[in-house]
């Protein structure tokens, strides 16, 4: 099986963007790819431990996903880690700006990562941005 490196940059706080990012991360990871997710900007607050804020929809598909039994994006990100060994790291800059302490994020999120390391890690693979 061919092993690819897939990096997913997640910046948006919109439901559709978060959903697609989570789908690529989870399906990519369980299909034997090496998946790295980098959470930053407005996306990061959803991953604060215990956060229950709902992501706003951009359009009708997001609203339909709310009504139907579409797996929540946070569950898919967690499954990417637990079932597919994906690595999810928060952006160290966003952690500082938001005042989030070490240990303040959901348990499946790794240590803060800076851009130098992220750019090095994603070298030579696919990079997706949401």
């Amino acid at each position: 099986m061919e092993l690819n490196k897939i990096s997913v940059v997640v910046l948006s706080d919109k439901r559709e963007q978060l959903q697609m990012a989570a789908m690529i991360a989870s399906v990519g990871a369980v299909s034997g790819n090496e998946v790295l997710v980098f959470l930053s900007m407005n996306a990061l607050r959803y991953f604060v431990k215990g956060a229950d804020e709902k992501a706003p929809c951009e359009g009708p598909v997001g609203e339909l996903m709310e009504q139907k039994n579409v797996p929540p994006f946070k569950i898919l990100f967690e499954q990417a880690v637990t079932l597919g060994d994906a690595k999810i790291h928060p952006c160290s800059m966003a952690m500082d700006v938001l005042g989030i302490e070490q240990g303040g994020l959901e348990g499946y999120i790794g240590e803060p990562m800076g851009l130098t390391m992220f750019l090095d890690e994603c070298k030579g693979g696919q990079v997706w941005s949401f």
């Binding site: 789908m23 989870s26 399906v27 369980v30 139907k68 039994n69 579409v70 797996p71 499954q79 079932l83």
Partner: peptide, 18 residues
Amino acid sequence: RGSFCPGPLMELIAGIKM
């Protein structure tokens, strides 16, 4: 049944390990 993509696939992957 009743779950949307990628729910069934993820349920399979959790189940196949069992």
